[in-house]
Design a binder for these strands. Sequence first.
DNA 1: TGTACATCAGTGAACGCGCGTTCACTGATGTAC
DNA 2: TGTACATCAGTGAACGCGCGTTCACTGATGTAC
Lengths: 195, 195
Amino acid sequence: MRKSRRDTAATRVRIVEAASVEFRRNGIDRTALNDLMSAAGLTHGGFYRHFCSKDQIVAEACAVAANSLIESIAQAVADGSKVDGLAIAANLYLSTDQRDNPGGSCPLAMLGSELARGGEAARSAATDGYLKLVEILAAQTPESRPEDARRKALVAVSAMVGALTMSRVANDAQLSEEILMGMKQALTAAGLLLQ
Amino acid sequence: MRKSRRDTAATRVRIVEAASVEFRRNGIDRTALNDLMSAAGLTHGGFYRHFCSKDQIVAEACAVAANSLIESIAQAVADGSKVDGLAIAANLYLSTDQRDNPGGSCPLAMLGSELARGGEAARSAATDGYLKLVEILAAQTPESRPEDARRKALVAVSAMVGALTMSRVANDAQLSEEILMGMKQALTAAGLLLQ
DNA sequence: TGTACATCAGTGAACGCGCGTTCACTGATGTAC
DNA sequence: TGTACATCAGTGAACGCGCGTTCACTGATGTAC
C-alpha cells in the first residue's frame, strides 16, 4: 500500500491540519494520536511514518493554527482602512465565532496554559505566532516611534488572548459576552491602550 | 489507623492545598491523584475518603488558589492609597515572582485553557474567583458610574490573565519581561484602560 | 467513668482502561539496469 | 521501454506504562450503655 510522493506529502499536511483542529478543540493532553489520525481518515499505526513524536506534531500543529489566524487577520486588516487596523483585528479576534469554534480559533487562547508548560518546539512555534500577530498590529498603530507601536501591540495581543480565554472559562453567557465586548471597546477606543 | 475528626479535617485541608499547588505547577491533566496525595504526605488509596472524584478536588483546589490570590491582592490594595489600587494590583499580579512560581500564582493564568474545557464545578469556581478580582479592582477605579467601573475591571483582569499567560508561553526572557512591563504600564497609566 | 462494639482514615495491592510507541506485514511505488 | 528488486505508506495487533478508581485490611477513634 505504498503511496506516491505527492500522496504522502498531502497526507502529512492533512494530519497536521487535523491535529491543529483537534488540539485546539480538546487540548493537547486530551487529544490522543488515535484522535488525530482518525480525524485525518487514517489508523494510528501510521503516525510514525510522518512524525517522530507527539511533541513534534504539537509544535507543527501550533504553527499551522497560528499561521491560519495570522493570515485571516492580516487579510481583514489589509481590506480595511489603515487607521482602524486594531479595531478590525479586535472585532475579528474577539467574536463569538472564535469563542464557540475552538477548532478554528486562536491557539494561544485555546492552549495557552498547556503551551506554557509545553515542549521547547511548541513554545517556540507559539512565540513566533504571537510575534507575527504583534507585528501586524504594530504596523496598524498610529504611533510615531516604532518601539511604542510594538509595546502597544504586545499589550493588545496579550489582552485579547486573556479576554478570549476568560470568555471561554466564564460560566455565564452574559458575563462571557461582557468580557468580549468590554475588551473590544477598550481596544477600539482610539489610541486607548496606554500612554 | 482511624484519625480524630480534627485530624481528618486538617488532612482534607492539607490535600486541597497541596492539590492547588500541584495543579498550578503541572496542569490538571498532568497531575495524578498520586502526586497530590504524595505532596500531602499520604498514599493515593486514601483519596476517596475525602473526595468523590478528581473533578471535585480540581474545583476545590481552584477555589482555594483563587481565594489565596484574592486575599493577597485585596490586602495589598487595602494597604495602599485608594487611587493607586489598579497599579498596586497590576504590579503584584504581573511580577516575575508570579510568573516563575506557578504553584503559588493565579489559577486563571496557570490553568486557563484547561479550565475552559473543564467540568462545570471547576469553571464555576474559576468564574467566581474572576468576579471577586473584578469586584476588588472595580472598587479601586475612579469611575463615577458603577457599570463603567465594572467594565473597566473586567477588561483589566482579563488583560492581566492574558499577559501572565503569554509571559510564560514566551520562549525568550526579554520578550517575557516586555510583556509584563508593557501591561503594567498600560494598566498603570492613569485612567488608561478605555473610555 | 468504664466497657464493648461500630466506625472509618489511611495503607497497599489490584483492576481496567487508554495512551504513546513499536513492529510484522502488505502491496503499490520508486529505482536500477 | 520493460523487468526485477528495493523501498516504504499505511494497517492492525501488541507492548508497557501510568492513571482513576476500588477494595480488603488495620487499628485508633467515636458511641452506646
